[in-house]
Design a protein around this nucleic acid. Structure first.
Length: 893
RNA sequence: GGGCGGGUAGCUCAGUUGGGAGAGCAUCGGCCUUACAAGCCGAGGGUCACAGGUUCAAGCCCUGUUCCGCCUACCA
């Protein structure tokens, strides 16, 4: 394509829009149903109500990196996108909308309300999908699914029916977590515990027949109207002689029995526990053990029921205050002590959850959990990083039945019907017409809907067409990896494991990669209330998607949270710009017109040292990136690329190759330089593409000799000797020598404040013939990059009377500085250097003086240390000599 | 209460079988050298939280202490 002169700085906005449209139009994200090898990922479906936040950005970026990488590797990639219907959240939004128009959902009626929700979904439910596209997400959008769409709803019904028939779903009266604001039951997982500084109230429950009584301790005095017993531990010696008669419930006069149960802690509080089976999970268990009645004193709106007598109708928290006052007034309150305890809150609306006795649907989860545990134990699914495996086991092993019914309207209505005549319950895929028991034709469907997580638990196979046996399913299930944050490990991952194994007889994913949370720059969780949220779209606007993505990848070290700040993104925008300019430079020298000079097989060229060095480094970075991505080490891959592009390719190779490119070394070297430049840039763009798709696509199209999208190209081969790309340790060590010498001379320049414009001379002295030869052969590079006018190298150098010195391994560099040298500064320089060397030398000598080290350490380590000692001694010797010499001259003057 | 992770340069963090303490940013000094000032060259800076132990050798392994963060939990 065109290699018109590029702009001096990279401008992301047009580029991003243009290429994303191009990719979609060319259907480059599409997965094919019957080709192999296949690689698949299902997206963690964002809530349809959601707006893009940092968590999504990280999650999507990682998946996109993997998918783009796999496509380049030649895999048939399916990245399945979609959204989640988010029952409670969506219903809340639409209800609020209706409220602003002045009516409630009850006024509208269920059917009309559902229509309104679908309407909302059509209008504004897809916002997040477009935001994912801004990130560059290469999902197969034609396959986008929604947990409430027809196919997935069919899957939900089938699963419900089958589990019911297998006895794994049941309906029962049980104490559940009730959110009075949302008006629905929620599962244990949806309750967030928060430490609250409250009080522990000691209340006297008088004996019925004699003076005194039992003092109970409670944090929730308002529940006392539901008390149906007081429990004490049978082993509690304080209570061995209490009367066997009842105690009197204060404020009501009701009599309740005293029971004995080992559950009660002797040392806690007063050792006497009030039992409220309808409003406390533990009390519920104790209550059923002792056949106690349950009395509901708080209704579904959080208001006191008529059982609370004169407190009926009060809000539960107002009631608490009123009850406290009454108990104090009437002398029953014996003590109030400050007490900090954990209180459950609804994870959606933060309302204090009310444990409430209620008839609900549950999944009997233990049998499924056991299989999900063993699948991980057997390695059928790997959890990465491994630390999460333990968390997974802990939770799975202590799992309790899952309350799946929700008293809301938006969601999958439970496919259960009750006969109006005989009360027979029918659970079926299709709406039954009459009762199979009594033939009655009036049936009422269960009004509850299912927990949203119930449908997302089926996501890996329901999105692929199940219950139909589709090609898609056969080709892409189980998926290759699930990429997700640990916050939904239990909500979602664990449940997908159970459902996948149960209904597909196969785990839903081979790997689970659990990534970190994105926090603000102070390590705090981003939240609207704290006001520390960074909006990804704002970041993208300002710095470009590529810079943002690269930042996320570079900071995504396993097992550690990411602290995000715009400052960091800015740093990586510079990197994107660096790539842009390096490419600009390459394309200044390789134009469409000169492209026929490029030789693809580098073996056919006469390569210079920097040529051989950079392709050896390229080989290494290709290997490293591939290995890192295979192991989900995104930060290593990004870091390795950063270092290679900036500090090897740009800092050294591009500078070293300039003379050849300017034709100063003849036609042969020009061809070699062009060919190597082209190869390195070509391969580097491919390596970078998964991380920064937009800029690489743009540059790819501008690079002569490419055709089509970079997405359709091939990842540089990891095999040996491709295009003559080989590991070349000899060139690497020679190049290291050259760069060390250059750095040495630059150091003299910098520390002595010698203007860059002043050309210097340098002499390299070494007794090693290799070194002398290398310096003589590649002196041009040193001359160029160190700003020299002359350079010589030999085994013996007549030391110039006034010169600065630099010592590298095996050689000494003299830079004559007649009239320029500042003796004091030079002495300071040398002393500083000598100091550093001596410190190192001391530790090494100490080691070698230790017999235990010599006899017990492995020989290759000992050799290494011996070699090091030699190098250090030699350097030290040279430095000392030069210091001595320059001090002499200085003293003469 | 139980569990997990972390404490390494001023800041943010790498450090993969124990064997020379690193990067980016920030700081300081010098440069508009024709790819890039969103740049180039150079420099300074760390008792690897603390105390023990294992080892020839510990940032890394073991024990304890301490601080921070998170998850989890049916002692009201």
């Amino acid at each position: 394509m065109s290699s018109d002169l590029l702009n001096k700085a990279y401008e992301p906005h047009d580029v991003e829009k243009r290429w994303y449209d191009f990719w979609e139009k060319e259907k480059l994200f599409e997965a094919f149903e019957k080709t192999k090898p296949s690689y698949s990922i299902v997206i963690p479906p964002p809530n349809v109500t959601g707006v893009l936040h940092m968590g999504h950005a990280l999650n999507i970026t990682m998946q996109d990196i993997l998918c783009r990488y796999r496509r380049l590797c030649g895999d048939n990639v399916l990245w399945m996108p979609g959204t989640d219907h988010a029952g409670i959240a969506t219903q809340n939004i639409v209800e609020k909308m209706l409220q602003s128009k002045g009516f409630s959902r009850e006024q509208l009626g269920r059917e009309k309300f559902i229509e309104a929700v679908w309407e909302w979904r059509k209008e504004s439910g897809g916002a997040i999908i477009n935001q994912l596209k801004r990130l560059g997400a290469s999902c197969d959008w034609d396959r986008e699914r929604f947990t409430m769409d027809e196919g997935l709803s069919r899957a939900v019904r089938k699963v419900f029916v089958q589990l019911y028939e297998e006895g794994l779903i049941y309906k029962d009266n049980y104490i559940i977590n009730w959110c009075p604001r949302c008006g629905t039951a929620i599962s244990d997982l949806e309750v967030e515990h928060e430490e609250i500084k409250g009080s522990l109230y000691h209340i006297l429950y008088p004996f019925q027949k004699k003076s005194g009584g039992l003092v109970v301790a409670t944090t929730r005095p308002e529940t006392m109207f539901g008390d149906t017993a007081v429990a004490i531990n049978p082993d509690d010696e304080r209570y061995t002689n209490i009367p066997s008669a009842d105690v009197i419930l204060p404020l009501t006069g009701r009599h309740i029995p005293v029971i004995r149960d080992t559950y009660v802690g002797i040392s806690f509080g007063t050792g006497a526990l009030k039992i409220t089976p309808a409003h406390d999970p533990n009390d519920f268990v104790i209550g059923s053990r002792h056949n106690l009645p349950s009395i509901k004193v708080i209704d579904d709106n959080g208001l006191m029921t008529s059982e609370a007598g004169r407190f009926a109708g009060m809000d539960r928290f107002e009631c608490r205050e009123a009850v406290i006052k009454a108990l104090v007034d009437e002398g029953f309150m014996k003590k109030i002590e400050p007490y900090t305890h954990a209180v459950g809150h609804c994870y959606r609306c933060k309302t204090v959850v009310e444990p409430n006795l209620s008839k609900q649907w549950f999944v009997k989860i233990k049998p499924m959990a056991e299989k999900a545990i063993s699948a991980v134990r057997l390695g059928e699914t790997r959890i990465i990083p491994d630390v999460w495996t333990k968390t997974y086991f802990d939770w799975m092993e202590n799992i309790k039945d899952w309350c799946i019914s929700r008293q809301i309207w938006w969601g999958h209505q439970i496919p259960a019907w009750t006969c109006d005549k005989c009360s027979h319950v029918i659970v079926a895929n299709d709406t039954p017409l009459k009762c199979p028991e009594c033939d009655h034709d009036s049936l009422t469907q269960e009004t509850d809907v299912l927990d949203t997580w119930f449908s997302s638990a089926l996501w890996p196979f329901s999105t692929m067409g199940w219950p139909d046996e589709t090609d898609l399913l056969h080709n892409f299930y189980p998926t290759s990896v699930l990429v997700t944050g640990f916050d939904i490990l239990f909500f979602w991952v664990a449940r997908m494991m159970m459902m996948g194994i149960h209904f597909r007889k196969e785990v839903p994913f081979k790997d689970v990669y659990v990534h970190a949370l994105v926090r603000d720059e102070n390590g705090k969780k981003m939240s609207k209330s704290k006001g520390n949220v960074i909006d990804p779209l704002t970041v993208i606007e300002e710095y470009g998607t590529d810079a943002f993505r690269f930042t996320l990848a570079a900071f995504a070290a396993q097992g550690r949270d990411i602290k995000m700040s715009e400052k960091r993104v800015e740093g990586y925008r510079h990197f994107i710009n660096k790539i842009w300019n390096a490419s600009r430079f390459v394309m200044m020298h390789i134009k469409d017109s000169s492209f026929d000079k490029i030789e693809f097989n580098l073996k056919n060229l006469s390569l210079s040292l920097p040529d051989r060095w950079i392709i050896s480094r390229l080989k290494k970075v290709i290997h490293d990136v591939a290995v890192s991505l295979d192991e989900y080490r995104f930060n290593d891959a990004a870091g390795g690329l950063y270092k290679f592009v900036w500090h090897e390719f740009c800092d050294w190779y591009l500078e070293a190759v300039k003379p050849a490119l300017y034709g100063k070394q003849g036609e042969e070297q020009l061809t070699a330089a062009m060919s190597v430049l082209w190869r390195v840039l070509h391969d580097t763009l491919l390596l970078l593409h998964p991380f920064i798709p937009f800029v690489t696509e743009e540059l790819w199209h501008r690079l002569p000799g490419t055709s089509g999208s970079i997405m359709a190209a091939s990842f540089p081969s990891k095999g040996s000797d491709d295009y003559g790309i080989v590991n070349d340790s000899e060139s690497e060590s020679k190049m290291n020598l050259i760069t060390e010498i250059i750095t040495g001379i630059r150091n003299i320049r910098g520390e002595m404040n010698i203007a860059p414009s002043l050309s210097l001379s340098a002499m390299v002295q070494s007794v090693e013939q290799d070194i002398v030869d290398t310096v003589n052969s590649y002196g041009d590079i040193i001359i160029d990059l160190a700003g020299l006018k002359t350079l010589s190298a030999s085994d013996f150098v007549e030391r110039p009377s006034t010169s600065a010195t630099s010592v590298v391994k095996g050689a000494t560099i003299f830079v004559p500085l007649d009239g320029v040298v500042d003796f004091k500064k030079e002495i300071g320089r040398l002393e500083k250097e000598l100091n550093k060397q001596t410190k190192e030398l001391i530790t090494v000598v100490k080691k070698l003086g230790n017999d235990d080290f010599l006899t017990k350490a492995p020989p290759h380590i000992v050799d290494k240390v011996r070699e090091k000692e030699q190098v250090l001694r030699e350097k030290q010797d040279k430095l000392e000599k030069n210091l001595y010499r320059i001090k002499g001259i200085h003293d003469d003057k």
